[in-house]
Simulated scan of single mutants.
Amino acid sequence: MHLLRRAGATPGQLRRMMVGEASIVALAGAALAVWPAMLGGRALLDRFQDSGQVASGVDHVFGPIALGSGIGITLFASAGAAFLAVRRGTRTGTRSGRSAGPARNVAGYAALLVGAAGVCATFTMNATDNALMAAPAYGAILLSVGFAVLSPLLLRALLGRLGRPITALFGASGYLTVLNLRRRAAELSAILMPLILFTGMATATLYMQAVETSAITASGVVKSVEDKTLETLNLVVVGIVVVFSCIMLINSLYAATSYRGREFGQQRLAGATPGQVLRMVGCESLILTVTGILFGTLAAIAGLLPFTVVRTDTILPDQGPGIWLTIIAVAAAATLTTSLATARRTLRTPAVAAVTVAA
C-alpha cells in the first residue's frame, strides 16, 4: 500500500481496491461453503431427531434466509475488516506492525472486566438453574477475548522475565528468539489470539459440559429434552469455534513464517546457520504456544471453578486432566508443525537469492 501511495494512488482508490478484493474473496468463499453448510445442517437435524429432541416429521430446509444471512455476514465482515485495515495502513506515518494504540488496550481491559463480572455472577445462582452454565461460560469466553486482545502486552511482559533464561538455555537461537519476539510482539498477536481463544473456549466449555453431565447422572435424573439440546448445541458451537480457531492459527502461522524469507536470508548472511534459524523458529513457536496455553487455561479455570463449586459443591472437577491435555496437544501440534514445516521450506532458498528476491 505504501508503494502504491508513492506511485500516485489515492487513499480512496486503495480502499476501493482492497474492499473490492475482499468482497470478491468473501463471495467466492461463501459460494464454496453452501454445499458443506447444507450437509452440516442436515447432519445436525438428524442428530437432533435421533436423540428425540426434534420430531421425526420435521424436514430439513435450506432456504433464502439461511443463504442470505450466511452470505451477508461473511461479506459484511470481510469488507469491514478490509476497510479498517486499509484505513489504518494508509494513514500518514503508519508503520507495519505498529500497535493499535490505547483503544485496543481499553477494549481488552473492558473484556476482562465484563468477563470477571460474568464469572462472579455464577455465585448468585442456584445449582438447579437452567442458565447456570451461561454466566461462567460467557465469562470465560470474554476473559479469553481480553487476554487475546492484550496479547502483545502479555508477551512483552513474559519476555521481560524469561528473556535471560531463554538466552541461557538456547544460546544464539534463544538470543535471536527474544529479539524477534520483542520486535514483532504486535504482529504475533495474530497468532496468539486464535491460540488463546482455542484453549480457553474449548477447555471451559468441554469441562463444564462434562461436569453438568456427571451431575445429572449422579442425581439419577433422566436427561430432559432441554438438557440434551443444550449439550448438543454446546458441542456444536465449541466444535465450530475450535475448528475455525485451528484454521486461523495455521493460516496465520504459515503467512507469518513464509513472509520472513528475507529475514532468514539476512540472518544466514550475517553468520547464522540454517539449523540455528530453524531452532530460533522452533523456540519462538514454543514460547507462543506456552503463552497462548497459559492465558487460555487461566481464562478457562476462572470460569470452570465457580461453575463446579456451585453445581457440585466441589472445587475441582472429577474428569481429570485428560480433556485439557488433549486440547493443548492439538494446539501445540498445530503451532509447532506449521511453523517448523514452513520455516524448513523457506530455508531451502539460498540466502543470497532470498534477500535479492525479497528486496
Rank of each mutant, 00 (worst) to 15 (best):
G220R: 05
S224V: 01
R260F: 01
A218L: 12
L235V: 06
L235F: 02
A218N: 12
G261T: 01
R268C: 06
L253K: 01
G265R: 02
E263F: 08
V236Q: 15
S224T: 12
L230P: 05
R260Q: 08
S219T: 10
F244L: 08
D227R: 00
Q267W: 00
Q267L: 04
Y259C: 08
Q267N: 10
V237H: 08
V238G: 12
V242Y: 05
N234I: 05
G239K: 00
N234R: 02
N234V: 05
G265M: 02
L253I: 09
S224Y: 00
V241L: 11
K223R: 00
F244P: 02
Q267E: 10
E226Y: 01
E231T: 10
V222K: 09
S219K: 07
S252L: 01
V221D: 15
G261P: 05
I250V: 12
L253E: 09
S258L: 06
K228P: 08
M248N: 14
Y259H: 11
E226I: 00
V238M: 15
T229Q: 14
Q266I: 05
E231H: 05
N234C: 10
V225Y: 07
V237Y: 12
Q266W: 02
V242W: 06
V238A: 15
F264C: 09
N251K: 06
C246Q: 05
K228T: 08
F264T: 07
L235S: 12
K228F: 03
G261F: 00
N234K: 04
R262H: 11
K228H: 06
G261M: 02
V236F: 14
R268N: 10
N251H: 08
I250K: 02
T232D: 14
M248Y: 08
L235P: 04
E263D: 15
V242F: 11
V237A: 15
R260E: 05
R268K: 03
I247S: 07
L230S: 14
G265A: 07
M248C: 13
S219E: 14
K228I: 03
N234A: 13
V237W: 10
V238H: 07
G220H: 09
I216P: 13
V221I: 12
Q266G: 10
D227Q: 09
V236P: 11
E231Y: 05
V237C: 14
V243D: 02
T217D: 15
A256H: 08
R262W: 05
N251G: 06
S258H: 05
L233W: 06
Y259I: 14
Q267D: 09
R262F: 03
V237T: 15
D227T: 03
S258F: 01
S258D: 12
R268S: 10
T257F: 09
A256M: 02
T217K: 11
S252W: 00
V243Y: 03
L253W: 06
A255K: 10
Q266Y: 07
L233S: 13
S258Q: 07
A255P: 09
T257K: 04
C246S: 06
I247M: 10
I250E: 05
V241M: 11
G265T: 02
L233V: 13
V225L: 12
S252M: 01
D227N: 12
V243S: 08
S258R: 07
V238S: 15
S224C: 03
L230Q: 11
G261V: 00
G261W: 00
C246M: 06
V241I: 08
I240G: 07
L253Q: 08
S219V: 03
T217G: 14
A218Q: 12
V221N: 14
L249S: 12
V237E: 13
